[in-house]
């Protein structure tokens, strides 16, 4: 609760939008038993009604169920990707920034190799290895995202380790764990949370982009990018259906970017 109060105006708006999206995805799973893959060819592009609040798509599938499933997929994947990449990036960054020497050189070498390729190309490469595999997408996105954490964390750690408050703690006889807890971690927390919000946005966009160029997940999976490309041919017949996944991605990205904004 204390953290929420520390957020500034735009961050609170971002958090509120994100909470609504998470709430929708979760409640839809809890309350609406409809299978997102069940077709009803007699009821194509039904307008929103009481039974189908978001209408139906080109195969008569419930858009409510599909949007819920797609949001759950995007949110969960971004959460897992952020957790993985943050853990790896922070751990390696602290290690490299603190110990320097050969650990720093090796990790920085790997980092430069990853950086040599544009992020999306690397993810495409992984996706191409095993088309339609969620695991490969997860690995690819995490591999691209950890780089940012590593660079920021390494720079902050180096500065903290060389700072005079930490020098003072060292002289007072404190060990490495204490110095990490008191000096390095407090300095890392805010930038890492900011990076996490940006990272989540990046992984959602990557998943949607891969779906959109049809190298990501395969139909009939409900995925935001895939839904966009499938519904695209019908944009004049049923623009409100196409608008739904577009609007959902827009809301997700803007919520996360607002959340990542400057702290007070």
């Amino acid at each position: 609760m204390r953290r929420v109060k520390q957020l500034n105006g735009s961050q609170q708006i971002g958090a509120a939008i994100l909470a609504c999206l998470v709430g929708f995805a979760f409640l839809e799973w809890l309350l609406n038993g409809t299978d997102p893959a069940v077709q009803n060819l007699g009821n194509l592009f039904a307008a929103p009604s009481l039974a189908e609040p978001l209408g139906t798509d080109q195969f008569g599938r419930s858009m409510l169920a599909r949007m819920g499933a797609a949001l759950r997929l995007s949110l969960l994947l971004s959460l897992v990707c952020v957790l993985t990449s943050a853990t790896i990036g922070v751990a390696l960054g602290v290690l490299a920034g603190w110990r320097e020497g050969w650990i720093d050189r090796i990790v920085s070498f790997v980092l430069n190799m990853v950086l040599a390729l544009p992020g999306l190309v690397l993810i495409l490469l992984f996706a191409g290895l095993a088309p339609g595999s969620l695991l490969m997408l997860y690995l690819g996105i995490s591999l691209v995202l950890w780089v940012e954490y590593f660079r920021v964390v390494r720079a902050i750690t180096r500065a903290s380790v060389a700072s005079s408050p930490m020098q003072a703690s060292r002289m007072l006889g404190f060990g490495s764990f204490y110095c990490f807890k008191r000096h390095v971690w407090p300095a890392l927390l805010t930038p890492v949370l900011t990076l996490a919000a940006f990272g989540a946005a990046a992984s959602i966009l990557a998943l949607a982009a891969l779906g959109f160029v049809a190298v990501g997940l395969r139909p009939p999976t409900a995925e935001l990018g895939l839904m966009m490309v499938e519904l695209f041919p019908y944009y004049s017949e049923a623009p409100w259906v196409l608008a739904q996944p577009v609007f959902a991605v827009f809301l997700l990205i803007i919520a996360l970017n607002l959340l990542a904004g400057k702290t007070k």
């Binding site: 700072s163 005079s164 408050p165 003072a168 703690s169 002289m171 007072l172 000096h183 407090p186 300095a187």
Partner: peptide, 15 residues
């Protein structure tokens, strides 16, 4: 064997 800093803030963790 200890040190006192010119800027006393430099001796304390601010968090």
């Amino acid at each position: 064997y200890l040190k006192l800093y010119q800027d006393p803030l430099a001796a304390f963790a601010s968090a």
